[in-house]
Write a protein that binds this DNA or RNA. Sequence first.
DNA 1: CTCGAACGCGCG
DNA 2: GTACGAGCGTTCGAG
Length: 818
Amino acid sequence: MRLGSLFGTPKTLASNVKKKPAEPVQPQNNVANVLKEKPKPGEFRIVWPKLEPQKVKDYKAILTLKDLEAYLKRCLETGYASFDWETAADEETRNWFSSLSEEEKEQHRKEYLRSPLDPWKGEICTLSVAAAPHETRVIPISHKKGRNFEEHQTRDKARQMVMDTLEKMIFTNNKVLKIAVNLSFETKFAAKYGKYILGPVADPLMMWVRCLQVAAPQKIIDPKKPNSGWGLKPATKKVFGVNMNEFTELLKKNDADFFDEIPADSGEGLLYSAEDSDYGLQHYLYWNEIAKQIPRYEEWLHNIEMPFQRAIGIMEYWGMKWDADQADVKRQEAELMQEQAAANIKKIAFDALGLNVDTGASGKTKEVKSVIFDHFKLPAAKWSEKTGAASLDLEALIDMIFMLENKLEAISEEKYLAVPLPEGWENIDPDASYGKPGFNGEITKDERYAIRIKKRQPHPYKEQGIALLRELMKIQKYSTLLSSHIKGREKHVNRRSGRIHAGYSTFTETGRCNSFNPNGQNVPRLDNDEFGIRNFHVPDKGKVYFLIDFSGFELRLMAWKSGDEVMIDLFSNNGDMHKRTASVMTGKPESEIVKKERSDAKAGNFGIAYGGTEHALQKTFKTKYFVRKTLDECANIVNAVKKAYKRIPEYQRKIVLESREKGYVQTIYGYIRLLPGINSANRYDRSSAERRAANTPIQGSAADIMKKCQNAVYEKIGRDTYNSRMAEVTDKDTNQFESLVLFIHGHVDMIAQIHDEMIFEIDDDPVLIEKVKDWVQGVMQEPPLPDFPVPVVADPSVGYRWGEKKDYADWEKERLTV
DNA sequence: CTCGAACGCGCG
DNA sequence: GTACGAGCGTTCGAG
């Protein structure tokens, strides 16, 4: 299959899918009048489709393979297969729970009752499919009551028959639109049985959330969780006025823990499973009419956002294996380090003041703060904007130590340290009025101040203060690593898979993918973590991690977006952008740029995409590079970047003007972010929106492109997995696929994403790994648009632990010589 | 006792 | 007075 075919135009999609004629759209306003006025910024003139009343429902059970095949043929005719599974705890999970003591049961009941949500602990018990609105077929596969599909078979065999038939007739058929509310969930359980839901696909939940965010943001209850209050049931009530049956009520009424304890061949069980597929399809048809009225949304939803829910599903399904032994050893080390830092803090306070302080876990308790500010009376360096409380973050601690070392009472005095004073001047009276030795003029204000500082006595608690602040830096670091990254992760290890299954979502302001429970995207880098937490993540036996990341992705997108000729030239000719910036900064030729100048420039280049300010750059230098720079120096760097790449500030001004008119910005493939603050009278709100206007098309386009790549990977593995199985079944003798290296589920798996990086777990087979490297790199390096002005580069690496990854070329060399 | 705000840290 | 985006653990005090 051609790669590009995954990313066709809406026309391609429409020709693939036979659609029901669109519902007649009844204008609710006087269209002629409305259209005369220019839309206000952020206003979309949506004509909400008029709805017909619900028809009499045709919901039936299917109990034979023949009937299932016949109904799936109907899906081929309508072009729609709206489907849903019901799931229940598997036998092993039930056995485990029933073997527990009453006390343990109480402790684990919540986890037990949630096992149907986890493909490692749950099993599909029911399938429902709808080919058209108001009709659904329910296939009870494994119910303890009522009739089941192909009853003469074992339940496992019956399930296999259902899944195989679905795969063959629907999942691998590009003429049928596969619709599922919460597609990532359906994907996970399909993956459990080795099945992939290939395109075209749709997730109505994504459609209504994404449409509402743009066209009716006031209807979103919680902007941070835009799907809250907008599950299938409330959405169906709001849109169609229909009250769907409640799952928990149904279970309660039947005194059941899981759905498979209720018959699904008739009655309430049948009704409950049938409704989801029916209304899923009705929502699809309804919301697609809305999507068509939002610029590029039908295309973006079908090609990028909805298919990506499958990438989420597959990443959540696999997760990453956790080396519990390694974690155990390192957790103890971390605990020791944290206790040591706490003991040191206690000792400093006790020796100096005779106080027994409670340091807590992170060292930032009221008592410790009281020692610092009430007893030691150390000068604070910065204060919270909201509460006015003295800050003790890394920047503040660095500044406070600097102040103690240099006898400063306020960090604003730092500039006087640079005032040159002739020898002996620290002994003269700064308040007296006399001319400089050898000069007639007065001592300047700055000189007076510098002299005053020189004459100061060191802070009475200088030594203890510095020692305490240094321990505070340590304990904060250890506390974060231990609590968030060691203990916080190991409590998510799945008892069945031994893996950590981080959750993912795309409900972010820029359309980026985020991660939670635990966050799989903020595992500390090895160079910033003495316990090597990345190394607790290991591939399964006989496998390797294959990692591949976009190189300088956002800067390349900035080159595209701004059209900056210098950046385009640099990226096109393999130039060094950081050196180039350094050259403009220093006025020296690139060949004379030293390492330090280059790294200064790097921070500047990096920051410019965020709407760079000298203030933030100063902080970056202080806390990341431990270098103190004046605001002027930082402003010079910012200006140097703007001067070196003139189109960047030009782009930033242009996009602001544009978003003031439109009220939103849009990414490369069409995601829209509203910017209500862009025309605000409040200067802070406005400039904040302006930075977002400039940044979102960059960050959001990076997200779009990454989604597109991961969609292609999902399709590839799914297609290859199906082909490999078909070869076994139908072409065993001809060995039709023998010459090909296929990417097969369980052998080549996409397990994580960190914004500009994908992680795979692959059989440790150099031939296979090379094929994966070539193919994935090819997908990632494909120009995102036909006339994309800069090359896109993706760097591959391989590792037997996450933290031990090596460049692909180095790994290959070693692997092949062993 | 629970819950949320504020703070501070990890990541790209 | 400001970098853009995100999640999670600790601390503390309000309800």
